[in-house]
Structure formats: C-alpha cells, structure tokens
Design a protein around this nucleic acid. Structure first.
Lengths: 219, 219
DNA sequence: AAAATAATTTAGATTTGTCTAAATTATATT
DNA sequence: AATATAATTTAGACAAATCTAAATTATTTT
C-alpha cells in the first residue's frame, strides 16, 4: 500500500510527537502541522481506517506497529537525503531540511537502497540524528553534536557525520576515534571554536566545522 | 510563481508534443497523459489564464514564451536527475525514467544548481538527450546513441554521456574524441557489441556499455 | 456537583483535479 | 450543400484535503 504526501506528513508528525509510547492530542498535531484541529480529526479517521493508528474519539491517539514502520521509512528517506545534500552537494546543514521534506516523499525502494549504498550506509544524518536501516532499526544513542556538549561534561565520541578521507585524516592526526573520551574545556564565541581535552590528557582546539561533524554521548 | 505537479506534467507533455512550433490537439494530449479530453480542456483554461499557453477553443494550442521557459526548467531537472541516477547511483538507464518523473517536481533552484555542479555540468542525459542550462539553452544536435546508429551510416562522435575518468581513459586508448568519424560495420546480437571503424581506418569492437555512452550525429 | 472553559468532533462549504454524459463545433463524405 | 462522423467543450458530479462555525465531550474551577 502507498500513501499520499499529506498522509505521510501526518504519520511522520505523529511519530515525532509521540516519543516513546506517549499519546498525542489533536491540538498538538494541528499546531505541529500548521493546520486546524478539524482537519486533523478528518485525517485521523482515514488513518485509523487504514490501521495505521490507535484512536478513540476524544481519547488521543498514537501509531500502530504498522504506522511506526511507515514512519521509520519516511524518517529514513529524509535523513539519507539530508546526508546526501550536505555531504555530496556541499549544502549547509541549515538549508537542507526543507528540501529533504520534499525528497522524502519520492517513492522508490530501489532508489533509496542505491542512495544508501552510494553514501556508504551512513548511521547518522548531518544533525546527528540516527538513520533507520531498511528494517527500521537505528542507533538509539542519546547522542548530541560536540558543539552542543556542555562545558565540563565528560563524554565519549560515538559517531562521525561523514566518512570523507579529509575528515578521517584529521581525526587520525588528533588521535580521535569512536570511543575516545572527550570534554569541552572552553568555548570561544568569536569563531565558535572549542578547547577540548581527550582521554583526560591531551588538550587542543577544535574548529566549529569539526565540532559539527563529531557526535558524542555524555557519560 | 510556482506550479502544481499536475500543471507541470501538462506543460511538459505539451512541450514534447509541439516539437518546434506545431499546434497540439486536445485528444493528442489526453492520450499522452492517459487522461480524458474533458480533463485536458479544464486544465487548458487554467494554463491559459496563467498565460502559459496560446489557446482558442477548438483551435488547438501551444506554449507561450513563458510556458516554454517553465517546460525547459522541468526538462532540465528531469535530465539532470536521470544523469545522477545512472552515473552516480549506478542504476540502469532503463529504470530511471519513472523516478526522474517524481524528482523533476522538487522545487529548489539551489538544489538543482548544486546538483548540476556536482555532476560537472553534463550536456547530455544517459539517453543522449541534451540537458538545458539555467537559461534554457541546450545543444540542438539531432544526435543519437551509437547503439541506435544504423549499420553503414557514416557519422561523427558529438557527445559522451559521462565524464568519468574510466570512460575517458578508454576513449583516449581507442583514439576516440568529439568529432571522430565513426561507422558501425557489424552488430552481434548475442552480447549487443558492435564492430566499428573510425576515421575510415581502424576497426575494433565496442561493448554495449560503451556504445550506450557515446552519442553520434549521422552525416 | 454545577458552571465555566477548553478540547475535540461534526456539518457543511471550498478548491483542485478528475470523471461521465450531453451538447456543440469542426471535418469528412456523399 | 446537407449529412454523418469525429473532436472538443460544457455541465454536473465526485474524491481528497482543507476550512469555518456550530455542536459535543472532557476538564477545571468554584
């Protein structure tokens, strides 16, 4: 079965709102989609009829197992395209979201598998969010971008936003790899660079660009 | 101004049907779009109101200057995406059309300029059709794929479907470049390879894959 | 627990793009 | 030139997705 762009947007929005297994309300969803509550109610009936969500009048709603599967497929497409736009087309990570919102509705499993392979099966998108695999599985890490790590919080490098040789060369030179302990010592607002200490030993400066491609898990 | 997917499909179909400056008829267009004549009439009124075509009841129609500009923009997107799918994602040139039909409606001038640059400003898509530039200009060559060239017709190499180093290496080795005279001597149906003669001198065999990336202009 | 307020749903209308069936216009045939 | 046929347009209906305004249900307040 295949879904309209509108249906897909509702499914994705519910997915993001229901975090874990919470229940979503009509007004919440209407706000998220910049639409009216009445429109949401109409769509809920349709999605319920298609067995994509659990919904009883006035009681809130959340995605069924099938609905979650659909949502993860859309999230997968969105994040793979974002990765492509930043990594291959050199777009800024702040200007790719809207374009990915359109690309995510292109319907071709073959295309997405080819794209995934071409990008070398990335695990995280440029914002650090994990990319679900074909079966909907993804890294559940509560990871954040190094640039967003609070000063003084010990943490561990858990992902890199790119596989480019240039980046890997720099990381090797700095002795940074997955699992390396890292802590922000000081931030310079002028150029958004950071002074970090790794493995409680070596200290050095990290550029904004590098900090944006490194993902860490606070310990 | 921006257009719906449906409007864009009508504009593109009219563009392809009106070849040069011919007039298109309602039934023709209905057949092309697999829709009914009545639906076409409805849309024609809308497009006329938007000044995208010249249309008088019962008299046929064709694109206005503005309409052609829109059409060329869509054709540009379609062919750039096809090039991307074949060249980068390694898809077969027979399986990319439908996907490009969806991708061509993504609306982001920045995206298309970035994609064009990433692909190294290709002049022809994988089927040998010229790709319009940002201003709608394109090679007007009546060129065809080498694989479609009739046996015994002298012709001239006028484009290559890719800029990959692997291809360029092979072409240098074979002494083939833009302007080289080429003629098909024999075809082998088993593997679709061709025996060709270049510059009326050297003969050798050309694989199906190579023949599909070479474009020639019959003399 | 009743009244007031907030959230949600229903009813009915609108827009876009489509359709069928009927009416109109153009073209071809005799 | 009149008639038959083919092409096109009009009229009216329908589905999807949205909206406003009114009605209903839930929640909060006193």
């Amino acid at each position: 079965m295949s879904f309209s762009t509108s249906e897909e947007n509702y499914i994705k929005a519910i997915y993001h709102l229901q975090k874990a297994d919470g229940v979503v309300t009509t007004n919440e969803l209407a706000a998220q989609l910049a639409t009216k509550a009445a429109s949401v109610t109409d769509m809920l009936k349709k999605l319920k009829a298609k067995k994509l969500l659990h919904y009883e009048k006035y009681q809130g709603f959340n995605l069924s197992t099938e609905g979650k599967k659909i949502a993860l497929g859309i999230v997968r497409k969105h994040r793979l395209w974002e990765f492509f736009l930043v990594e291959k087309l050199q777009m800024g990570w702040d200007e790719v979201h809207e374009i990915a919102e359109e690309l995510e509705h292109i319907n071709s499993p073959l295309l997405i598998e080819k794209l995934d392979a071409y990008l070398d099966h990335p695990k995280f998108d440029p914002h650090g969010d994990p990319i679900p695999d074909v079966h909907g599985k993804m890294a559940s890490n509560r990871q954040i971008n190094l640039i967003d790590l609070e000063t003084g919080t010990p943490s561990e490098v858990c992902a890199v936003g790119s596989q480019s040789t240039e980046l890997l060369e720099l990381l090797r030179h700095r002795n940074i790899s997955i699992g390396t302990r890292i802590e922000v010592k000081k931030r310079f607002t002028f150029d958004h660079s950071l002074e970090v200490k790794i493995n409680n030993k070596t200290s050095f400066t990290v550029s904004q660009q590098l900090a944006q491609t490194l993902f860490v898990k606070p310990l």
